[in-house]
């Protein structure tokens, strides 16, 4: 197959950045999108040119490293998939493909298609965990958890932290990301002691990082490779309202 690629090139965070156009030929329809970029980069290297920088690692859709805005969509034209699991057979032969980095204020571009997503880690630092030290846990079966609760918590826990929800959202909101973690822990008995404070703190950090508000368009869930459902956001909302509206029963 043959493609015309319009790729965003930006030397570093300070650079203005611009589009450059490349032609790639003889691409196998079974090549993944990243492998197609590999082919382009091999050629650029041989020509002594700077290859296109992009994040990637596991290339099987679980590490959350890759993330490219392709033809107007986060992770490309398919739903619920990572860039590394997008294959060239999903494009038309001869098509022009527009390739941009994920864009959001909290995701500054590092180079070309690589952005800094550490803001997501800082949201987790505000409470996306259960405070337990190694060694202090009771027997694993000491607390039974209803299977449906465990299953549902699992659905929310599968977030891979790729940032596609932010990239797809018109307001660059990190609600689906934050809500996935809040909901995962809210559904488990282990998560209860810190539940009120967790949701307040994580929402505050989300705002401080410069992510936008959620307007329930649902674009995030369509692009989410982990298929985190929108009910996560409802859960966060519920917990947040509850935590702020009801008096904390433990304060004197």
């Amino acid at each position: 197959m043959h493609f015309t690629l319009r790729i965003w090139r930006q030397k570093n965070a300070q650079d203005q950045g611009h589009f450059e156009t490349y032609e790639v030929h003889d691409i196998s329809p079974d090549a993944s999108f990243l492998e197609m970029l590999d082919v382009l980069n091999e050629r650029l290297l041989k020509e002594g040119k700077d290859p296109v920088a992009f994040d990637h690692d596991c290339r099987e859709g679980i590490c959350g490293s890759c993330g490219i805005f392709i033809n107007g969509r986060a992770h490309g034209p398919l739903r619920n998939i990572t860039t590394c699991r997008l294959y060239m057979r999903h494009f038309q032969d001869g098509e022009t493909i527009t390739i941009e980095p994920f864009r959001a204020k909290p995701f500054p571009v590092i180079k070309d298609l690589v952005v800094d997503r550490s803001a997501l880690d800082r949201i987790i630092q505000r409470g996306g965990y259960i405070s337990v030290n190694a060694g202090s846990a009771p027997d694993a079966n000491a607390i039974p958890i209803p299977k449906p609760a465990a299953d549902r918590a699992f659905d929310y826990a599968t977030c891979i932290g790729c940032g596609a929800c932010v990239a797809a959202c018109k307001n660059a909101s990190a609600m689906l990301f934050t809500a996935a973690k809040v909901s995962h822990l809210a559904l488990l008995p282990q998560g209860q002691p810190e539940r009120r404070e967790r949701v307040k703190q994580m929402v505050m950090q989300m705002d401080m990082e410069g992510f936008g508000h959620c307007s329930n368009t649902g674009a995030c869930a369509v692009e989410c490779p982990a298929k985190i459902p929108l009910t996560a956001i409802a859960q966060l909302q519920r917990d947040y309202i509850w935590a702020n509206l009801t008096p904390d029963p433990y304060t004197r």
Binding site: N71, G72, N171, A172, T217, V222
Partner: peptide, 29 residues
């Protein structure tokens, strides 16, 4: 909300296809 919107994504996408993942109703709010 409208006044802050641009703040969250100061540099917009050159090609953005929200029509593929949202309803026309949410886009026209």
């Amino acid at each position: 909300f409208i006044s802050k919107e641009r703040r969250f994504r100061p540099k917009g996408y050159t090609l953005h296809r929200p029509q593929d993942n949202t309803t026309i109703f949410s886009r026209t709010m």
